[in-house]
Amino acid sequence: MNLTKTKEFAKILRLHALNMTSKAGSSHIGSMFSIADIVAVLFNDVLKIKPKNPNYKLRDRFILSKGHSGGIIYAALAEKGFFSKKKLEDYCKNGSNLSGHISHYKVSGVEFSTGSLGHGLSVSCGIALANLRRNVRVFNLMSDGELDEGSNWEAFMFASHHKLSNLINIIDYNKLQSIETVKKTLNLEPLESKLVSFGWKVFNVDGHNHKQIYSKIRKKKIRSKRKPICIIAHTIKGKGVKFMENNNLWHYRAAKNEELKKAIKHICR
């Protein structure tokens, strides 16, 4: 892993996401910044993918269950060469396929469309089950508020029961959901012991520390035990732009004029 490169990649992704949402006047920039470092590590150093052959059979599957952060995945895919970076300008435009919530339709590299929360993990279970005997890993990235959805807990039970050791679920634990804090809305704690009791191998990482993220999801660590793996990534919503951090206004608001300039400065610092 080249830390400088990955950090630079995360910066580029943040800039893309910022410009895309700002231009489109669309929401969820805070959620995108929250996962920017995880996405950078995944797409730069972890995922086995081939942009020139996107349906390559033995590719790793990446599912974004928190579909509202789709913008930053489009950015990662464009940067990796799945499609031209120019296409990112179409984000949320009339007639475009690049919807605010991630969609696969006519977008190369998007494994699965989501947008309603609590769908990704079940689908990932199906994909992991079909590929259990192949050298294919399935990464599902979900939000913390998403865990309010009961369907996830059905999937947690299923994955451990069927020993889906090729499944890695990453929880973006930024502790803020749509309106309020997770703690105030529906407290998830003790999250780690809940997941352990559901039969998962659980790791806690700083979701903005590239080295830590990488050390837990790199290939060697995976499939060592006959258990699915869950990474609780402790993150900060809006990470990278000081005035957006931990402020739920940026779940909805798009940066305009001076805000945009200021945000770019923050990211490029």
Partner: peptide
Amino acid sequence: QNLIGISSGL
């Protein structure tokens, strides 16, 4: 819900 999700994945 899980049934349909898993089926879709498969």
